[in-house]
Amino acid sequence: MGTLPIRSAGMESALKLRRNAMNHMVTALAVIATAVVLVPLVAILGYLLYKGFSSLNLAFFTKMPVPVGETGGGMANAIIGSGVILALASVLGIPVGIGAGVYLAEYGRGRWLATAIQFTADVLNGVPSIVMGIAAYSLIVARQHHFSGLAGGVALAIMMVPTITRTTEEMLTTVPQMVREAALGLGIPKWRTVVSVSLRTAMPGIITGCMLAFARVAGETAPLLFTALGNQFFNLNLNQPMAALPLQIFTYAVSPYDEWHRLAWGGALVLIVMIMVSVTLVRVVTGRGALKGGQH
């Protein structure tokens, strides 16, 4: 401790100056970085709104695609197809996801099996969506020898499961232990406690998780490329190739026709409005602190 170098007053103030300058520089850099990052967001959203609104009209929602060269037409088939595929994915994915989350939070807490499942779910979450597409192709399309909306729904369902599992688990762990103990103490069987007490208390959060998973897969294109394939015609049969909004946007965006580009922008706007609404809704629901009510 006695070996501290003795500094002159000048050195001291120079050092202080340098430290302060460094501090201000980093602060400025952080502010600039934040501004720089917000630019593409604003640019994307602004351009999307501008391009999207100028190409949206009633026909977009009600008409079928028209052949190249003709103007007009819409994406009714893609919007409906997306709805059907997403409904199928939700029906398959949400129960499994919630069930797995319940196991992790209510039954397996602290066991190695639960940790292993958590870890697998996290890793599965990071698997590229195109790989899910290949898996669904190999499992369903290759076996049936034709593309189908069903295969697309299964691919999306697989993608929903890990997200829902982890949020359900997270939300259930915020339910206070006393609430469960109170229910069990009244002689209510465990399954009933889980369903009517734990799940019920955590419901807003779990719905949030489901909507986030839904929003995430709603815009997925890659897993649908060789499962649902896309379809220029109206189709409600899950056993046939089915149109989907993201697929249609992709097809139109990479095409050389201006009319199709216009439709692609319109489709992107519809897609993004749908996703933004659900994400914002989620934020409102969770922001209200519905879960903190359990404590009093």
């Binding site: 990052v37 917000l38 593409p40 967001l41 640019a43 994307i44 959203l45 351009y47 999307l48 929003a215 995430r216 709603a218 815009g219 997925e220 294109t221 890659a222 993201p246 946007i249 992709f250 965006a253 990479v254 580009h261 692609a264 922008w265 992107a268 897609l271 993004i272 996703i275 933004m276 994400v279 934020r283």
Partner: peptide
């Protein structure tokens, strides 16, 4: 943080569309 969340919510294909034309 809300804006960064929105950035995460934009689908890949929309980024691609923006990329191609802008």
């Amino acid at each position: 943080s809300f804006l960064t969340e929105l950035l995460a919510a934009i689908p890949s294909v929309v980024y691609g569309l923006w990329g191609v034309f802008v």
